[in-house]
Amino acid sequence: MQPKPVALKVLDLASIILLAISTYLALVFAPTERVMGDVQRVFYFHIGTAWTALLGFILAAVFSVIYLIRKDLKWDRFQVAAIEVSLVFFLITIVLGSIWARPAWNTWWTWDPRLTTAAITELIYAAYFMLRQGIDDPDKRASFGAIYALLGGLSAPLTFFAIRLFRTIHPVVIGGTNPEADGGFSMTADMRLAFFFALFAFTVIFIDLFWNRLRLGDLQDNVEQLKLKVSM
């Protein structure tokens, strides 16, 4: 059993502390928004997770390209780690958004460009893991995963772009209510502090989880090789 590096242990601890501070800032420190009430506090974590998840998906597409050029399984493990953590974070983003939308827009879900793209993105990366599960050969699994992550990373922004373009050109589809305007608010200085702190905290948490997941990937690789060695 490989001991955790000290840096990772420090990062683990820092993540927990940052999460606690960020929670305090979001729940207590920031003032209550007047129109929407307490539910607006969900917004800080919503943006924090969304930002890191999108960053992770973009990173995954970059790792895809690097893997396809270099053919080094290290980049495959980077990619899996990034996508898995992002998938979890993005799920939180969607659930939080939905919870916020219920009192703010009076519905759990609307087929607005962002929500639709978010749902499709989540499905793409769920499919990514289903694809990987069906392949035993590590090199093939890595190649196929990289190709699919690349296609997915390309397709998701295209979808967003397409829906957004069509919906703004056909305002009838939206039905008169523009969700972006409905529920918008201006941040006070305290809110802004909580907001930027949440962004920072979730970035650190993301890196920490990513690192932990990366070590898990290395371990998986180790065990797989040992299995091959033993079975021979």
Binding site: T23, L27, M36, G37, D38, V39, Q40, R41, V42, F45, V95, L96, I99, W100, R102, P103
Partner: peptide, 10 residues
């Protein structure tokens, strides 16, 4: 009062 939603979210 939308604190219920907030608690659920967190």
């Amino acid at each position: 009062d939308t604190s219920g939603y907030m608690i659920a979210g967190y």
